[in-house]
Design a protein around this nucleic acid. Structure first.
Lengths: 339, 339
DNA sequence: ACGCCAGATGTAAACGTTTACATGACGGCT
DNA sequence: AGCCGTCATGTAAACGTTTACATCTGGCGT
């Protein structure tokens, strides 16, 4: 059996109250007794029972993270950012990932009840109705990349518009005119924004009123297929902008398989800046999303909400992103070398 | 204020005991009252308080994961595997990553006290003494890639010996004789095993009694430096085997920068099979470690220990790994093409 | 008609903490 | 000398559940 505070009290010959005071350093206790208590606790290997403590203090020092079935770098970077910031505030992290359906998410949410002080939700598929039904309204929550908007929760999104605009501007600046776009899954909020951003930028900056857009789903395979499809067009695009890096990588393979040289024959760009982008050849130009930063910011917002409940944070916050120019977009053919 | 079980009891006009029974489906309650209770609970948006529940049931349905400051794919795959299996058992996951020092780890461990039913620890630096001091002995624990061995906890390791042996055998089989090794950080258990495995395999299978081994630290940069160093030797190795993929990638760059062709002039192999390995050119031959599988197995072991406390699981379990042959080791120069 | 049994329901204790409040001791001030 | 304030310490209530046990109800067998 594990030692409880009572055992320590008995061992140190004081009351449980004094043990609590001594161990929590709240004062109101003699240096001598504090020492006695600490020694007794050490001797018994006493560790306070977290659940019991949170029950009475109504603080768990834990925040929850509700994530969809994510693979790879995005997931780990996000967790990393959240966890870093959480650690800074002395908070732990209760993760629930890989939930696909709404039921999954709902039950994960209930299971977190009473175990977390706040929650970070990344779920492009959850709508306002679901949240209203399953999220206790007094639980601080930060929504990531979510279309939901309401004063209820804070929302933190990637600035997809700024990113696509910057990349389109760059591609045009390098001299490409006919730019094609490979879109992401239609039900994904980021994908929607990136496509809209691309169309907007082309309408605004380009001379092409209705640019070519082919469908995709963020997968490498979809990128490959899209690449083949684009090559079959009568008027081959001068540049291809994929809605994420994975598709750009797939597309790159398609272009190579067709015997084309990138960026000589055709330019290519992606979005996300996953690590792989740096290692394909030619290295992929892309829009950098600082994912860990996204996690950190979310966590920062959340701890703010926890510290000062009732503060309105309903605004939608945007996390900027910048473009990183490597070899695949042809900029270096005319300029400096940059690795 | 959040609704408690008392509120539901009042709303449904029954006692708290009946509410508990109705909601937990343990029987001993009329269908009619169960319905009344469920409706009352739904009306009040009642969700049971996790901490209160675990306090009395002595079950948290949560397992902890204590991880070092890990980047990238390894981290996310591991969590993924653990979480998948945990979900299968209806368990949640309390993550504490990015802790560097021993103090960090110790305080993370205390914070988990009373919040988890078991724990998975990946920490090549923690020794038996630390564990004895900071881990409650009746808390089921699974150690990953740990040199610690004891009946106290289960240990699950990657079979680094089998992996290095297989790769050395393969390289020799392709015809390479002078094989050099880039080692990992000396204080890392996996690194130690891989180096020992390499030396053992060379002594056993090769004709070279004392093969060249240069130092490294698992980083891309260290791989680059090691590559340069190896090229300066009077007798250039025919193949280089890096203790992990990241160093292999760095080394590849060094070889390219020196104007060498891989695998024509020199062969290269890594260890881990991180996603990047497939995307560099030439694609990297490597030893595949099924990381998600590692997480799943650990979690499986753990839930076994939780379900049947007292069962001895002190044995060291090994997770096998197989080699994946791509272009960088020169096998394809003499055989079929394989992507 | 009586008692009994099964099953539904309620009462209250227990889990391990924190903390408001009561108690008691001691020292300094007038 | 008496009083009061300060401060260490103890007692007990509270947090929100689950569950052993007591109580009550109704139906059934004799």
């Amino acid at each position: 059996m594990k030692a409880t505070i009572k055992d320590v009290a008995h061992e140190a010959k004081v009351s449980v109250a004094s043990v609590s005071r001594a161990l929590n350093g709240v004062g109101g206790v003699t240096a001598a007794t504090e020492k006695r208590v600490r020694e007794a606790a050490a001797r018994l290997r006493y560790m306070p029972h977290g659940a019991a403590r949170s029950l009475i203090t109504r603080r768990t020092n834990t925040i929850g993270a509700l994530l969809p079935d994510l693979h790879g770098e995005f997931f780990s970077e996000l967790i990393r950012g959240i966890d870093q910031q959480a650690r800074l505030h002395g908070l732990q992290l209760l993760v629930s990932s890989s939930h696909d359906g709404l039921d999954d998410a709902a039950s994960a949410l209930r299971a977190m009840q009473g175990r977390v002080d706040g929650i970070v939700i990344l779920s492009p598929r959850l709508d306002a109705r679901f949240l209203k039904a399953n999220l206790p309204e007094d639980l601080p929550a930060v929504l990531l990349n979510s279309p939901v908007t309401g004063a209820q929760h804070a929302v933190l999104n990637i600035d997809n518009f700024a990113g696509t605009h910057a990349m389109v501007r760059h591609l045009l600046g390098v001299g490409h005119r006919r730019i094609a776009f490979i879109a992401g899954p239609p039900d994904n909020y980021d994908a929607q924004q990136r496509e809209a951003g691309f169309r907007g930028a082309m309408a605004e900056l380009g001379h092409d009123g209705s640019p070519v857009v082919v469908a995709g789903d963020f997968s490498e395979r979809a990128g490959y297929e899209a690449g083949r499809k684009l090559l079959k067009a009568k008027l081959r695009p001068q540049a291809i902008f994929a809605a994420n890096d994975m598709m750009a990588v797939g597309c790159l393979q398609a272009l190579k398989d067709a015997g084309l040289d990138v960026p000589q024959d055709i330019a290519l760009a992606g979005f996300d800046d996953i690590p792989i982008s740096r290692y394909v050849s030619p290295a992929l130009s892309t829009v950098r999303v600082r994912i860990a930063e996204l996690g950190r910011s979310a966590m920062g917002l959340l701890s703010e909400m926890i510290a000062r409940p009732g503060t309105a944070v309903g605004a939608v916050h945007l996390l900027g992103c910048d473009i990183v120019v490597r070899d695949s977009c042809g900029a270096h053919a005319i300029g400096s070398v940059h690795r």
